[in-house]
Amino acid sequence: MIPYGKQDISEQDIQAVVDILRSECLTQGPAVPAFENEITRYCKVKHAVAVNSATSALHIACLALGVGKGDIVWTSPITFVASANCALYCGAIVDFVDIDPRTYNMSVESLTEKLVQAKKIGSLPKVVIPVHLCGQSCDMAKIYTLSKQYGFKVIEDASHSIGGKYLNEPIGNCRFSDITVFSFHPVKIITTGEGGMAVTNSLLLAKKMQLLRSHGITRDKDEMTHPPDGPWYYQQIDLGYNYRMTDIQAALGLSQMHRLDEFVKKRNILAKQYNQLLLDLPVVIPWQQDDCYSGMHLYVIRLKLGQINKTHCQIFEGMRSAGIGVNLHYIPIYQQPYFERLGYNGKNYPNANFYYSEAISLPIFPALTQQEQITVIETLQIELKS
């Protein structure tokens, strides 16, 4: 089976982890701040907070921005459920903004229309979470302008996007957002096994997230309610969580950062090759904005079902049966049973519904060989024409 994505682990990565296993600190040691520092350098951002997953990063990002019971948070319906769940964890109300039919990211036009209507009825969002689907940035400059006009905060869900660029600047510099979140799951662009990172230019937000990732506990005497009882002393000053990243994970991530640009370059080369190989097939290839350099985490095609004698599901099953590990990113969140029970439905998201009816993710990862890519295309040709 050729998977849709997988990690690329080098001997250098293995040695970095072994070095930590032989050290005194498996967690809460020097590797985590070293990894954070490398992320801040690469992304040209001031602060980074490493955690055990991107879901955790989204959660503490919402909390740091004051999201609580009764607040409203908007995100894209075409994303993993964590982009919405993070707000529900805080007691907030979640709603969705339809996607752009070409980029599959949050539609600025739909966002603008929704904001106009929300202002009229007094239900503006406290936070908007644009998702950089597949690795391509949302139109953050326009979203930022809307945030100033309507008074909401912005969390970029850049789980797919580290190593990508927007307006020739690294995704994650937080020029147009309050906080950006990355994922380091094994199928992502770099990996720490499991892990995530929240980055920001705000010292206040960084300190809040640092506190929340470790039980709400501080050892900083300036943050305590009274002078410490001794050098052993700490205080829990907030209700936090055990969201820490281990030094084992951080060492892997730090080592992987040395190959980040190489990974993203290879993914973009593979995408261009797919584009050429798919030209004569009844599919829609990914559309890339001129002002973006995608991390290319995913390569999503859309089937022109009107020109094919099979259903979406039949094509998907045929590819899987032939050993091609295609996937579908993503099922619209409002279709999940949990959200349906909360009263969500898809009537207001025609672009998301249409996308879901046609989309298939083809395998893309740095170690994908030319022969494997040809096999993917030849298999797809057979499925589409049979």
Rank of each mutant, 00 (worst) to 15 (best):
A34C: 07
I60W: 05
H59D: 07
N105T: 09
A92Y: 00
E36Q: 13
A48P: 10
I99G: 00
A54C: 15
N105I: 07
P33F: 12
P33E: 09
D95C: 06
V94L: 01
G70M: 02
A92I: 00
I72Q: 04
P77K: 04
I60L: 04
C90F: 01
A48S: 05
C43R: 13
G68I: 01
D95K: 12
T55M: 13
K44H: 14
N85L: 11
P101L: 10
I93Q: 11
I99T: 03
A82D: 06
A31H: 14
A34Q: 09
I99W: 02
S56W: 15
T55R: 15
S76C: 01
H47A: 05
N85R: 11
K46V: 06
D71V: 02
G66I: 03
T55H: 14
A84W: 08
R102S: 12
R102L: 14
V81L: 14
E36I: 09
S56L: 10
C62R: 01
N52L: 15
V51I: 13
D98F: 00
C90Y: 00
S76D: 01
V67K: 01
T79H: 08
K69E: 07
W74I: 04
G68A: 04
D71Q: 05
L65C: 03
L58S: 08
P77C: 08
E36D: 09
Y42L: 12
H59F: 10
C90A: 06
G66N: 05
A48T: 09
K44R: 14
V97E: 00
C43H: 11
I72M: 06
D98E: 00
Y89L: 13
F35S: 12
A34P: 08
S83V: 06
T103Y: 09
I93P: 07
K69N: 06
N105V: 08
V49Q: 05
R41W: 11
R102G: 10
I60R: 03
A64L: 03
H59S: 09
T75V: 01
Y89A: 12
R41H: 14
A31D: 15
T75M: 00
I72T: 07
V67T: 02
N52H: 15
V97N: 00
H47Y: 15
G70L: 03
F96K: 02
C43L: 15
I78G: 02
A61C: 05
A57W: 08
M106D: 00
V45C: 14
C86S: 03
R102W: 15
A84F: 09
S107C: 08
V81R: 12
A92E: 00
A54Q: 14
V73F: 04
F80M: 12
